[in-house]
Design a protein around this nucleic acid. Structure first.
Lengths: 137, 137
DNA sequence: TATTGTTATACTCTATAACTATA
DNA sequence: TATAGTTATAGAGTATAACAATA
């Protein structure tokens, strides 16, 4: 390990390693990490506005469009015009989407366990908390 | 914050936020985060083999080639055939490269302080340690 | 046989600007 | 005026495969 003290380096490397494990694991379901993230977010927050998905995941709204289209073409998500705002779309999983998410979630949980096996529950909570403190305003 | 418990989400978002702050900060020097990472690694480990740089930063050797070329064209780094392996290149900063790195390092340290201002020294060390435990082996 | 650096390629990600329709 | 979604585009990141030179 030649890396220095800069947190950015360690963050970058941890992310790369995690994605290098997750990507092939999800490939069997023809999903990429970002697509799973969308499915998860919509599953847990049904009716969520499309823009909000972008905000939560750090994906700009322009870049979100083709991702949403991809999931709609596969019949995994559906949209309705938002109740109180005709400009916005509310997102929902279809039955197909829920099945896909169920299978993907299992793959992702196995992946997280594989990647975090050296950390106990306390450390994992601490890590989550520390990451959330990064770059908050 | 609608995000769930999955560490991957929090890692992804922290990385995005950090890069969104660092990228424009380095743009004044016409550097990108990955180029600074290479400068830093070569500065601290003069003579490092090109392949090793890729390993340390999680960049594949094929993708490293144009990055090294970019820094050589700018006269920031130079190469020599490695002492004990004619296939490999040892990398060094030029005087120009050291000056560029000095200026970039100042920008990066300010950036890290901005991003991590909510964390004290203990938390920062803990974060670095936790990130290093992610995906070892 | 395996490894370092290279080339080529395809795909994905990301940032930016401009447009529309609604608010 | 501002916001949600869209389109278009260019640049950067990433994965894969194949090759030459050397180990």
């Amino acid at each position: 390990m030649l890396l220095g003290d800069l947190i950015g380096f360690h963050l970058r490397l941890a992310t790369t390693r995690m994605m290098n494990d997750l990507r092939p694991a999800l490939a069997d379901l023809e999903l990429r990490p970002v697509l799973f993230a969308i499915l998860e977010l919509v599953r847990v927050n049904p009716g969520i506005i499309q823009m909000r998905v972008g905000d939560e995941l750090g994906v700009q709204r322009a870049n979100l469009v083709p991702l949403i289209n991809e999931l709609m073409k596969r019949g995994a998500i559906k949209r309705k015009i938002a109740k109180h705002d005709k400009r916005a779309y509310s997102l929902y999983l279809t039955a197909t989407g829920e099945l896909l998410h169920d299978r993907a979630k299992r793959v992702v949980l196995e992946h997280e366990e594989r990647i975090l096996k050296r950390l106990n529950a306390t450390d994992r909570n601490k890590l989550r908390w520390l990451l959330d403190e990064v770059a908050v305003d």
